[in-house]
Amino acid sequence: MTSLTTSGNTLPGGARTRHRSEWSRAWRRFSANRIAIIGLIVVALLVLIAVFAPLIAPYDPIKDIFRGMRGVGPSMAHPMGFDHLSRDLLSRVIFGTRVALLVGIFSTAISVTVGVIIGALAGYFGGWVDQLLSRLTDTLMAFPIIALLVVLAAVIGPSLPTTILVIGLTVWARYARVVRADVMSLRQRDFIVAAQATGVNDWRIIWRHMLPNVLGPVIVLASLGVGSIIILEAALSFLGLGVRPPTPSWGGILADGRAFILRYPHISIFPGIMIVITVLAFNFIGDGLRDALDPKDSK
């Protein structure tokens, strides 16, 4: 995405200043939005927690086993208590941030890339290419996403890379639809017709003239998508088909929590709170971006 903005900035003359001021105006609108800034700060904190997990976590999330502390509830020294295998839950929840953010960010990157490419091809070329790609998109949209993820994860074998790949390759349909519609309407515009008339090749038109113009909605959708992907990852791990134990993930800890819900209810509480906070933060950013990038649509 950065490369796209940069390529936009190198446009000659007036286009350059106008372009830059458009983004800086969007940033000003975004930074005036208090809720969006809170979201941004929370996400920054979560990133720090994920990166410095080994320094922040008081204990090792897998190896440190406290004998005789099986399922013991929260205390001063162990604010989240112990899980059913006598491990420190706080440390496990802290390390779980890594899985959530890794999957949230990388799956979103994959799905945006695939969706933008497919949407741009369908919208630009039209005809049978559009028919083929649109039906492919419809097909993907028709599967209840959890069912598709569960089956694909079972086929490939559950692991962190599988989770990232499987989610990334199944949730691109929304991006494809948005990009296709925008590219189709752009195709009629004078500056595209002019580019075509002067013999600019198709790929260059898509890359240099169309994509910068559809970037706004894609960025908004992507930032709102991270939250739902984090929930999907948690659901997949909860069902036992995401990240494998003993690697700590929020969904995986919740699966342990469900198994012992009537005996050790505290296990289920904290990972869920972390998921809600994380998803809310990303959604706040997404809402803020939507209002900032598309002021006419703001409420």
């Binding site: 939250g227 929930i231 948690a234 659901a235 909860f238 919740l254 929590g257 469900r258 819900i261 009537l262 209810p265 289920s268 509480i269 990972p271 869920g272 998921i275 809600v276 998803v279 809310l280 959604n283």
Partner: peptide, 14 residues
């Protein structure tokens, strides 16, 4: 929208 349904379920059970 931000609350995973399975977690809400677990909390209601508790």
């Amino acid at each position: 929208i931000a609350t995973p349904n399975f977690w809400l379920g677990l909390m209601l059970i508790v």
